Amino acid sequence: MRRLALILTLCALPLPVAAHKVIASVFPSGTAIEGEIGFSNGAMAPDLTVQVYGPDGALLGETVTDAEGFFLYTPTAPVAHTFRADLGAGHVADTTMPAEEVAALLGVAPAAAPPSAPPQTAAPGAGLSAADRAEIARIVRDEMRPLRREIAAYREKNDLQTILGGLGYILGLFGLAFYIAARRKLNG
């Protein structure tokens, strides 16, 4: 009878859920802002409208993700840009690029530049044409995309909550084994 009760109890326990988090990140890409939107399980968000907001909440513009969940947006003002997209089922992507990074993209000096900054020398690749720089930027972007996805997947798999949950299961199983052993010793 006890075994039947134990089996029924174990069958009634909830099964683990394959939850996933929204991945949303932005980074400089030449004179544009490139970003990606998707889920931590590797599913990206294709053909998704991404709205771009300024620090005052005003809509600055919109863009659309490509088939791999990536988008490009060209800023026009050196202000913080917040990118939001609704992925459905309560999932909302929300990420911000600070005003300093946007100002650097636009070639505008930041508002509070440090006075003791050393003079700038020629930038690497200054002798390249605009087309060559754009091609190099595209190649680097394409090579970095899989690495970003792998890092996000690794973070999702190996977070502290997962580790603590595994330890909890182990301790719970030992506790159950000790309880059953103690009951057998008392009864028999």
Score class of each variant (00 low, 15 high):
82 T>E: 15
89 A>C: 09
91 H>P: 00
87 L>Q: 12
41 N>P: 01
26 V>F: 08
23 I>Q: 09
62 E>F: 10
53 Y>N: 04
15 L>W: 06
39 F>P: 01
26 V>Q: 13
83 F>P: 00
44 M>A: 06
82 T>N: 10
58 A>K: 02
22 V>E: 11
51 Q>V: 13
40 S>I: 04
69 G>F: 08
56 D>K: 05
77 A>C: 01
88 G>W: 11
84 R>G: 01
52 V>M: 04
33 I>P: 08
50 V>D: 02
71 F>Y: 08
45 A>Q: 01
84 R>W: 01
56 D>P: 01
66 D>H: 04
86 D>K: 09
20 H>T: 14
22 V>G: 03
30 G>K: 00
78 P>Y: 02
35 G>K: 00
39 F>D: 01
85 A>E: 03
20 H>A: 15
55 P>M: 05
96 T>G: 01
31 T>P: 09
63 T>E: 15
43 A>W: 06
78 P>L: 04
85 A>V: 00
52 V>I: 15
88 G>R: 07
83 F>H: 00
74 T>Y: 08
27 F>E: 12
61 G>F: 00
59 L>S: 15
92 V>A: 01
74 T>P: 04
17 V>F: 03
26 V>W: 15
39 F>Q: 09
87 L>C: 08
90 G>W: 12
68 E>G: 03
18 A>E: 05
63 T>I: 12
93 A>W: 02
60 L>Q: 15
96 T>N: 00
23 I>P: 15
34 E>Q: 15
88 G>H: 10
56 D>H: 01
87 L>S: 07
72 L>E: 09
36 E>N: 10
24 A>I: 04
23 I>V: 14
24 A>F: 02
79 V>Q: 06
58 A>P: 02
48 L>K: 13
94 D>I: 06
45 A>E: 05
51 Q>S: 13
88 G>Q: 13
58 A>D: 15
67 A>L: 11
19 A>W: 14
86 D>F: 13
60 L>F: 14
96 T>P: 01
32 A>W: 08
62 E>K: 15
87 L>E: 07
94 D>F: 07
79 V>Y: 03
94 D>E: 13
43 A>I: 10
27 F>A: 06
23 I>D: 14
92 V>D: 05
79 V>C: 03
47 D>S: 11
80 A>E: 11
20 H>W: 07
95 T>S: 03
86 D>C: 04
27 F>K: 07
62 E>N: 10
59 L>R: 13
30 G>T: 01
18 A>N: 14
29 S>M: 10
19 A>T: 06
71 F>K: 03
36 E>S: 12
31 T>R: 13
80 A>F: 08
86 D>M: 05
30 G>Y: 01
33 I>C: 08
36 E>V: 12
19 A>S: 10
17 V>N: 05
87 L>N: 10
66 D>Q: 10
56 D>N: 02
81 H>W: 05
93 A>R: 03
43 A>G: 06
53 Y>R: 12
43 A>K: 11
23 I>M: 14
65 T>G: 00
55 P>D: 09
